[in-house]
């Protein structure tokens, strides 16, 4: 038994299609849609050799078709300036950088805490006292106008002036500066002569050489009572300011506040704790964080924290 008997199969007969030429498509037979697709592919340089030959044959027949196909090359999109604003939000930090940053901040915070503790420890011994109130001397405002005029010399001067000046001037002078006015002593240059420090001035020119001077009217400054003078009032208040009570600085409270501040800013979980014995005396101070934990015993004779 051979295979032909077991598995019978058909053998093709010699049938042939006689008109092969009818199946071929010429370039001129392309529809407009087909030509568009071909032109788009040509503009993309994506045609195979066969397609390229076909379209070149068409271009050879009609030059306008080449121009038409060339217009597809202009249909290229150029990227607009579209920017993604949330780009930086997706950037990640490396684990090493994150660890370094965390260690750095914790080390910095620890250093700051210990610095605070060691700096404030000696201060805790001393009691902070504000300076004692300074009692300022009472300021007395005394007007020059109240000073008594030197009677002898001024009288002498008046005589000299009256002898050397005309009666009109004298009258005017008397009108302006009546002898009973208190302010005359202030404006009269003769008052200076009356003082003990100025004998030299007196011994200079003789009374005959003196010339009358023109006087300007100066109204006396009204006396301001001490209660209304703000400068005096301010100074008096400052001098009477009560001294604050002696207040010790609690270093532990300061350090705790500092740690609390760092925790709120950095979001870390650092803590500073006191360890007390049964009597309630401070035994040790411990600092703990995610990376570091320190416990420092406190000596009995050390100042209170």
């Amino acid at each position: 038994m051979n295979d032909d008997i077991i598995y019978p199969h058909l053998t093709p007969l010699n049938d042939r299609y006689l008109s092969h030429g009818e199946l071929y498509r010429s370039a001129g037979d392309l529809t407009a849609e087909q030509f568009d697709l071909l032109a788009a592919a040509w503009a993309e340089n994506a045609l195979s050799d066969e397609g390229l030959a076909e379209i070149e044959a068409l271009f050879a027949i009609d030059k306008l078709k080449e121009i038409y196909a060339g217009s597809f090359r202009q249909l290229r999109l150029i990227p607009c300036n579209d920017r993604w604003e949330g780009l930086n939000g997706l950037l990640q930090t490396t684990p090493a950088a994150r660890t370094i940053r965390r260690v750095f901040f914790i080390a910095l915070a620890s250093a700051a805490i210990f610095f605070t503790l060691f700096t404030l420890k000696p201060l805790a011994k001393k009691q902070v006292t504000l300076t004692a109130p300074v009692s300022l001397p009472e300021v007395a405002v005394i007007s020059d106008a109240r000073e008594p005029a030197a009677p002898d010399i001024s009288n002498k001067m008046e005589e000299t002036i009256s002898s050397s000046t005309s009666p009109g001037v004298k009258k005017k002078s008397q009108e302006l500066y009546p002898p009973d006015r208190e302010s005359t002593a202030r404006i009269s240059p003769v008052t200076m002569i009356a003082s003990a420090e100025t004998p030299v001035l007196i011994s200079g020119p003789t009374s005959r050489e003196l010339r009358p001077v023109s006087y300007n009217v100066i109204t006396a400054t009204p006396d301001i009572p001490n209660d209304e003078n703000w400068i005096i009032r301010g100074i008096s208040r400052l001098s009477r300011a009560p001294a604050k009570e002696k207040k010790p600085i609690d270093a532990f409270v300061v350090a705790s506040a500092f740690i609390k501040g760092i925790n709120s800013v950095l979001g870390s979980e650092m803590a500073l704790d006191k360890t007390l014995n049964k009597k309630g005396d401070l035994v040790a101070v411990s600092f703990s964080s995610s990376l570091l934990s320190i416990k420092a015993p406190v000596k009995k004779n050390s100042p209170r924290l």
């Binding site: 579209d82 993604w84 997706l90 950037l91």
Partner: peptide, 18 residues
């Protein structure tokens, strides 16, 4: 790496977005 990832964000972020 993380650095390359960040480069991918900076370099391709706008491209993918647009």
């Amino acid at each position: 790496t993380v650095k390359e990832y960040n480069n991918a964000v900076r370099e391709f972020g706008d491209h993918v977005y647009r």
